Computed example of a mutant assay.
Amino acid sequence: MNYENILAEKDNGIGLITINRPTKLNALNRATILELNEAFTAFNTDKAVKVIIVTGSGEKAFVAGADIAEFADFNEEEGEKLAALGQELLFDLVQNLGTPVIAAINGFALGGGLELAMAAHFRVASDNAKMGLPEVSLGVIPGYGGTQRLPQLVGKGRAMEMIMTAGMANAEEAKTYGLVNHVVPQAELIDFCKGIAAKIMKNSSVAIANAIKAINANYEDGVNGYNTEIRAFGESFGTADFKEGTTAFLEKRKAEFPGE
């Protein structure tokens, strides 16, 4: 896959997406969002890819925010369309992918960068990472799901404080808040994420996709997550992965899931 603003590579069942705009601290502009949409969609439809890792190029930033110059002169209608389109093309897409997405946060994850990391299924941070939603310091609010996902992860009060102060949390603070799962030295970040990916890949990709769907259902308005879980549980019984998993257990051998 050849892109102008990102790098995408596949190796041993892992799709690695690297946002590659180092001179802009990997800021998200429209072109980058479109390329990310294409890369995530391609990996999600590739049966050989079992886990996706998303990170930023260099040592300074995962994504330092949105490209402000691109929308500084927008009016109200244009601003609303910007948020709606961005959520549809990237942030909601990532959250609802059936393929697990790990955000490897290397350095600054601010504004749209933190919103992208929060859309991933979970997050690992390098020890130099700093995270925040500074939008109110620019006279705007988070528009790519930040006001919704941050409270889900850290609680309403903590999210209110982070958004209102436009402050940043360091990696250890973010771990304490529940915003990231692990903090590791920057040099070990990608290998650590690949280690988690290897554990994930031992399991049924079909079951994992259904688990993601059921977990996300709990956060959707008007959706009963328990009912989603019940349906997905029942559907599991009709899969080849279920047959292989239960047979392997009874035969006391390692399962070789077909992913069907």
Rank of each mutant, 00 (worst) to 15 (best):
Glu115Trp: 02
Ala125Trp: 03
Ile53Asp: 09
Met131Lys: 08
Ala104Met: 08
Ala31Lys: 13
Val51Trp: 11
Leu34Gln: 14
Ala84Trp: 02
Phe122His: 05
Leu36Met: 13
Leu85His: 06
Glu70His: 00
Ala119Gly: 02
Asp73Gln: 14
Ile33Met: 15
Val101Ser: 08
Gly111Lys: 05
Ala69Cys: 12
Gly56Glu: 09
Gly86Tyr: 01
Ile105Phe: 00
Thr45Tyr: 12
Glu38Phe: 03
Gly79Asp: 01
Ala84Asp: 11
Thr32Glu: 03
Leu28Gly: 08
Ile53Asn: 03
Thr55Asn: 03
Leu138Thr: 09
Leu34Gly: 04
Lys47Glu: 12
Glu76Cys: 07
Leu85Thr: 10
Leu34Trp: 06
Gly132Asp: 09
Val49Gln: 04
Glu115His: 01
Phe91Trp: 15
Ala42Val: 08
Asn20Phe: 14
Glu35Val: 03
Leu89Phe: 10
Lys24His: 15
Ile53Trp: 02
Ala48Met: 04
Asp73Lys: 15
Glu70Gly: 09
Arg30Cys: 00
Lys81Asn: 10
Ile53Phe: 06
Asn128Trp: 02
Lys24Glu: 14
Ala69Val: 10
Glu80Ser: 10
Gln95Pro: 03
Gly112Phe: 01
Ala31Arg: 14
Ser126Lys: 03
Asn44Glu: 11
Asn128Arg: 06
Arg21Thr: 01
Arg123His: 07
Ala109Asn: 02
Gly146Tyr: 07
Ala66Ile: 13
Leu114Asn: 01
Phe71Gly: 07
Pro22Asn: 00
Asp92Thr: 14
Ile19Asn: 07
Thr99Arg: 12
Asp46Tyr: 09
Ala27Thr: 11
Glu77Gly: 05
Glu78Val: 10
Glu59Pro: 06
Pro134Leu: 02
Val124His: 01
Asn44Tyr: 06
Gln95Asn: 00
Gly79Tyr: 09
Ala64Val: 08
Phe40Pro: 05
Glu76Ala: 15
Asn75Tyr: 01
Ile102Tyr: 11
Phe91Thr: 13
Lys50Gln: 11
Ile68Cys: 04
Ala120Pro: 07
Gly113Met: 05
Lys60Thr: 15
Arg30Ile: 13
Thr32Met: 00
Ile102Met: 08
Gln95Tyr: 04
Val63Glu: 09
Lys130Asp: 07
Leu16Arg: 08
Leu110Phe: 14
Tyr144Met: 13
